[in-house]
Structures are given as C-alpha cells and as structure tokens.
C-alpha cells in the first residue's frame, strides 16, 4: 500500500485509488486523535520542514500538529525574518535546510508551480501546502473527506459519485477551487462553479464543470455548497464594485438556505469573511461543517505524510 507519487504537488497527478488510500488511512488517524494519547511513534526518525513563504494560520498549525502527532521532528520557517529578504534563491534556501538532514518539506509559496520546481531539484518529498493560484491539495482532500463523513452521518453511502457540489465565490484566485474540482471529479461527483463572471476563469468548463452565475440557482442545484473566501490580496484590479455589493448578490445567508426546501451541507475552507461571502448565521448553523473540516485536516495531513514517508533508501 503506497501512493503512486513521491510528492504531493497537486490532486491533478493523483490516481483515484491514491485518494481512497489517503481516506482509508485518515480514518485510522482520526481514531488515534480521539484517544487520550493522541500520538503515535510512527515517524520518530523523520524530520520535516514547514516552509511558508506566505501567511497561514490553519494550514500551518494543522500540518505542524499532524507532524507532531506522528512523532516527527519539526522545523518551521517563514519568509519574513529569514535570509529570503537578503535575496537568497528558493533552491538555495531549501538545499540549506535539507543539508541539516531534513527528510520532507511542506511548502507554501505565492508562485504557482514553486513546489513542482523544487521537486525537480531536491531529493526530499515535497508536500504542497498551497502554491499561488494553482493547487492546495490537502485542503481538497480534507474537503472531500468531510463531505463523505457528513453524508455517512446523514445516512447515505459514503460515496461522492453523482453527488452535486457547488463551489461558490472567488474561483479565479482560488487554489482551493482548482484542487477541489480535480478531487471531486476523480471521485465521480458533479461539480458546478458559481460567482460573479469576473471571478470565474473563462475556460473553466473545459475541466468538466458547470458554470452558473446565479448563486441562488447554484444552491438549488447542489447537495453540498463549498463557499470560498474573496481573496482581496490577490486582486490587482477591482473585479466587483464593493464588498457590500458582493455580499448582496453573491453572499449566502440563512434566508436563502431556508427558501431551498432541502438541507444542503455548507462548507468553507476558512478564513471566513463573515458577512461577505457567507453570513454569520449560516457559518454557525447546523448545516455548516466548517469546524469538522478543520478537525479532519489534521488526520488527512497525517495520512499524506505517513503515506509519503514509506520506503526509504537507508544507504543514502
């Protein structure tokens, strides 16, 4: 039992069987996390560097906890206050860290493709914790894992095949959206993206997803709505007039959900802009599984790290 890849750069490169293996393993780690001693000695001989060139709270804490629950040694690095500001290149930075006998690298970078570039130049396994507007694979995995889990709780088979998932909001700047689309399609779900035309990339239907500019219609269509954050920091030019206008036309509130006459599952990868893409009463409602997503994040990341740290050439 291993993954077909050496690095986790994106969901795009994964086989559907890899995703199932990760889910099965995460199930077991989730069980470990519910014990009084939430820790296993599996990776006590492994050192992992978390290299974050971009801000993060959730993902970084989640990765760090996952590593510590597996008994790995952890070093943290963030771009601010490091030699990066002195002009060191990415490869030099990482090679210097690897020279200190680090086995695995978890990296977030603002440039799309940075983890791929790195994987071509270093031996250690790379886990992409988000690269620019490209992919955020562990987020997509924990999203699909949480969907499965919630469906089982609701009495369905834990199968996403044929389930309708709407991804709503800033699709253009979202690596979560792209990874989610790849992941959901590989698991057989139907995917729709919805939001203002300026925030939906032109040729996105080539990925096999439906496009709907009316959020209300998207909600009526779907079983699960994954609401994304408006990424103001990635917008160089204004793509909608004001946040208030966005909230008015594309924000999801309780009234809309109550008008649907069915219970859809509400998700959000965080951080939430309360009152913009999603109102507080929705984010905190019974239908929302936002905090389950965060909880599952640790188990999913433990699974990915465990599965990538298998066979190693001990001579090296």
């Amino acid at each position: 039992m291993s993954l077909s890849v050496k690095h986790l750069l994106g969901i795009k490169e994964l086989q559907p069987a890899d995703i199932q293996t990760i889910f099965r393993t995460a199930d077991n780690f989730k069980q470990v996390l519910q014990r009084p001693i939430k820790k296993v000695p599996t990776l006590r001989d492994t050192t992992i560097a978390n290299i974050f060139f971009e801000n993060s709270t959730r993902t970084r804490i989640s990765f760090e906890l996952a590593e510590k629950r597996l008994s790995a040694d952890v070093v943290n690095f963030s771009a601010s206050g490091s030699s990066v500001s002195k002009g060191e290149t990415l490869i030099d930075t990482v090679n210097n860290i690897l020279a200190m006998k680090v086995d695995m690298v978890v990296m977030r970078h603002s440039a799309s493709g940075a983890p791929w570039f790195l994987s071509q130049h270093v031996d250690a396994s790379i886990i992409n914790a988000g690269d620019g507007v490209n992919e955020h694979p562990t987020q997509a995995l924990l999203d699909s894992f949480s969907m499965k889990e919630e469906l089982i709780k609701k009495g369905y088979k834990g199968d996403l095949k044929g389930k309708r998932v709407a991804i709503i909001g800033d699709i253009m700047h979202s690596r979560v959206a792209l990874s989610n689309i790849f992941c959901l399609k590989k698991l057989g779900a139907e995917v729709m993206v919805s939001g203002p035309p300026t925030l939906i990339p032109k040729h996105i239907h080539d990925l096999g997803v439906k496009v709907e500019y009316n959020v209300k219609k998207a909600l009526m269509w779907c079983d699960i709505a994954n609401v994304l954050r408006i990424q103001l920091e990635r917008q160089n030019k204004p793509l909608f007039s004001t946040l208030r206008e966005y909230a008015l036309f594309y924000g999801i509130n309780k009234q809309m959900l109550d008008g649907l006459q069915k219970d859809i599952i509400i998700m959000h990868p965080g951080p939430i802009n309360r009152g913009v893409e999603i109102s507080s009463d929705v984010a905190d409602s019974e239908q929302s599984i936002i905090l389950d997503q965060v909880e599952n994040g640790v188990a999913i990341r433990m699974a990915v790290i465990y599965l990538l740290s298998g066979k190693r050439d001990l001579e090296a």
């Binding site: 039992m1 291993s2 099965r24 393993t25 077991n28 069980q31 470990v32 296993v40 000695p41 599996t42 990776l43 001989d45 597996l70 465990y306 599965l307 740290s309 298998g310 066979k311 190693r312 001990l314």
Partner: peptide
Amino acid sequence: ITFYRDDLHTNELHVPRKT
C-alpha cells in the same frame, strides 16, 4: 499496530485496520 511498526522505511507500508 501499523503505526507502531519498526519497518516503516524498509518494507512496504501496511494497510492500517481498525483499533
């Protein structure tokens, strides 16, 4: 006992079962 094994890096990974 999958997560407690001592052959993680020498053998193929084992499929974990339920505890």
